[in-house]
Nucleic acid binder design. Structure first.
Lengths: 219, 219
DNA sequence: ATCTATCTGTGAAAATTTTCACAGATAGGC
DNA sequence: GCCTATCTGTGAAAATTTTCACAGATAGAT
């Protein structure tokens, strides 16, 4: 085992990765931990500590070499391995995901969409192949799909996840407000829209000056 | 000061709140920490510890009274205070947010939408009043809007946030991939779609069995 | 080559968060 | 009332994560 990297560190490094991606086509070739702090809010010493977990990278008076650091993160986390994804549930949110430029620009290919409503699918205007939900297991396997975005109605979320898992899915991004909790080695990232609202409310109520992030985990 | 509640605890309690909301219209009137663990994945002792931070609630052989616990969380975090929200950027993702049932059902009112493209707004079919982005500051103030969802193009994210803040916004849910980092007491929850994909990749690469959450921080 | 200013890398300390273990409380049966 | 089974509440221990402080490294100037 190559040494365990703590989850908060993984999250921060992915955030830094995006910054590097922006900066890569910029004027300078390097960036310091202090500059990373200014742009991301992650304290400089934490940035250094996190990066040091990746093994060493030659330093310098200038800070980190942007390209070098980016590649190091990319390799460590296998971000360069191409991943195929699908979207299940093609109402407004699901459709927005199917056509999401951010996702496509980052190199993640969305290769299929699923919905239980065949009429709706026939009306949709997209190049991505669409299938009825009863074909999920079959198509996930056939297309070797790694990741799925779940945007179905809450009452369908669990069975949708189970179909995906039977098809061999590796990771799920779950937009439904149902807590998906599997023993297996399926990784689920939950994006709870409503909870983000509640967290804003809660943070205002408790102090008004918490830090506000988590990705989170997550929406 | 009423005692500081750690942020991870706030996030878990909001998750538990949702579970209670589901269970409230169920058959039983109470739920134990063990049952909460089974449904949320949060360990029972952590559940108890978290709940104990809220001050005491009479216990019993049966576990927690669902209604009582729900009210306690609601009051502690002022989740019952009505909040008015808006959406800035009405492309597919923004429109999906404007019409999102989850948000509405949870009692959060979306009272305005903003977009820089006036033609697009005229074509949209919604009862929610829509305004051009140059009116953000004015309208946020006029409607006393508390929260905003930012779904604009990355290059517009920062200036959008600044307009909202000048209008007096209290919290922002940011869907753009730009890191918004303010000194002020504005709370920002970032939902980084692409980062969720990267985190799935990273977690598979590092061990394949990390726990997967945040949002998840954050979506 | 030496000096200086600027950064990183990292062991150790501090802070935070989670886990544990068990005392205390409650409801039901006898 | 008393006993038992089931839970919570919580101080203390353990684990994890963040912060600190400074040694070491590099690049440029003189």
């Amino acid at each position: 085992m190559p040494k365990t990297i703590p989850e908060p560190t993984i999250e921060r490094l992915c955030r830094i990765f995006r910054l590097l991606d922006e900066k890569e086509r910029g004027d300078t070739a390097s960036i310091s931990s202090g500059a990373i702090e200014k742009e991301t809010g992650i304290p400089a010493h934490t940035v250094r500590k996190d990066i040091s977990q990746l093994g060493s990278l030659k330093s310098g008076k200038e800070g980190y070499d942007i390209k070098g650091l980016k590649d190091l993160i990319e390799n460590t986390f296998s971000l360069n391995v191409p991943r195929r994804s699908c979207v299940v549930g093609l109402d407004m949110l699901g459709s927005a995901m199917l056509n999401n430029n951010q996702i496509i620009n980052a190199g993640y290919k969305i290769v299929a969409g699923f919905d239980s409503n065949i009429n709706r699918m026939e009306m949709m205007d997209t190049d991505i192949p669409l299938f009825p939900t009863y074909e999920i297991e079959k198509k996930v396997r056939e297309y070797s799909i790694d990741f799925a975005i779940i945007a179905v109605k809450p009452e369908k979320a669990k069975e949708t996840a189970e179909k995906l898992i039977r098809g061999g899915i590796k990771g799920i991004i779950n937009f439904s407000p149902v807590i998906l909790n599997f023993e297996d080695n399926i990784i689920v990232r939950n994006i709870y829209l409503v909870e983000e609202f509640r967290l804003l409310s809660a943070m205002i109520a408790t102090t008004g000056k918490q830090k506000g992030e988590k990705n989170e985990e997550s929406v």
